[in-house]
Amino acid sequence: MKVRAQIPGVKNATNFNVVADSKTPVGSTLENLKAAIAGETAAYTKYMTFAKAAREQGYEQAARLFEATAAAELIHIDLEYTLVAQMDPDYEKPAVQAPASYSCDLNLISGANGEIYETSDMYPAFIKKAQEEGNNKAVAVFTRAKLAEAVHAELYLGAYNDLDAPDDDRFHLCPVCGYIHKGEDFEKCPICFRLKDSFTAY
């Protein structure tokens, strides 16, 4: 993802449309925040399961990518939970069972498909509703997650294509928005502009 002159968002980016065959049930913004937390929690659990499987199958770099992406989902959960707690103080985060795990190539495709759904369907739909309700905080949180998920999908597809030709690159996680950069050639996050020195390497 390229760094732009301004932080990307709904007012200066054109890739926020909801897919024509949307599969996302849309409720109130509060309901959507809870749904997003449930989805991100499921993704976190899935990616940690896939990381363990990748390492057992001998795919160390893929394992690190799954771990970095799982940590990114925790960032999104925390951002969303902060808003939910303000509106519904009694809300409790959901518990999710670990899913079945398969060969690493299929797990990478599963990860990519999930991230594509979130970036092209779920989050754009939730952003649109939050805009209608005038909830700018939710728009900002959903936007950061939406943009990060697109990069996660790209990384998963890249790992899938190069599964049998891995390199030594590390993955760097932005602690603010969950963006992940592969390699060392960057100075700041292209989503929130956080500087590289605060990133966590995997």
Rank of each mutant, 00 (worst) to 15 (best):
110 S>H: 09
39 G>T: 03
147 L>N: 08
79 L>H: 12
28 S>G: 02
91 Y>I: 06
33 L>K: 01
39 G>N: 05
40 E>C: 00
54 A>V: 03
21 D>S: 11
167 D>A: 10
154 E>N: 10
98 A>G: 05
22 S>M: 02
33 L>W: 03
148 A>Q: 10
47 Y>G: 01
109 I>C: 06
125 A>M: 05
33 L>I: 05
73 E>T: 00
158 G>Q: 02
48 M>T: 14
122 M>A: 13
65 L>A: 09
146 K>L: 15
201 A>D: 12
20 A>K: 15
97 Q>P: 06
114 G>N: 11
183 G>I: 04
170 R>K: 14
193 F>S: 05
79 L>P: 06
142 F>S: 09
18 V>F: 02
148 A>C: 11
93 K>P: 05
19 V>P: 07
182 K>V: 08
66 F>V: 12
134 G>W: 14
198 S>I: 05
62 A>L: 00
102 Y>D: 02
194 R>L: 10
12 N>V: 08
85 A>K: 14
135 N>P: 04
162 D>R: 15
69 T>R: 11
99 P>Q: 10
102 Y>A: 12
112 A>G: 01
147 L>G: 07
183 G>F: 03
115 E>R: 06
2 K>G: 15
8 P>N: 02
122 M>T: 10
85 A>C: 11
29 T>N: 09
170 R>F: 15
61 Q>W: 11
138 A>R: 03
69 T>Y: 05
144 R>D: 13
28 S>I: 11
162 D>I: 05
55 R>M: 12
152 H>Q: 05
192 C>K: 00
33 L>Y: 02
156 Y>P: 00
49 T>H: 02
190 P>G: 13
159 A>L: 11
78 D>P: 10
180 I>A: 01
182 K>R: 15
61 Q>Y: 09
30 L>S: 04
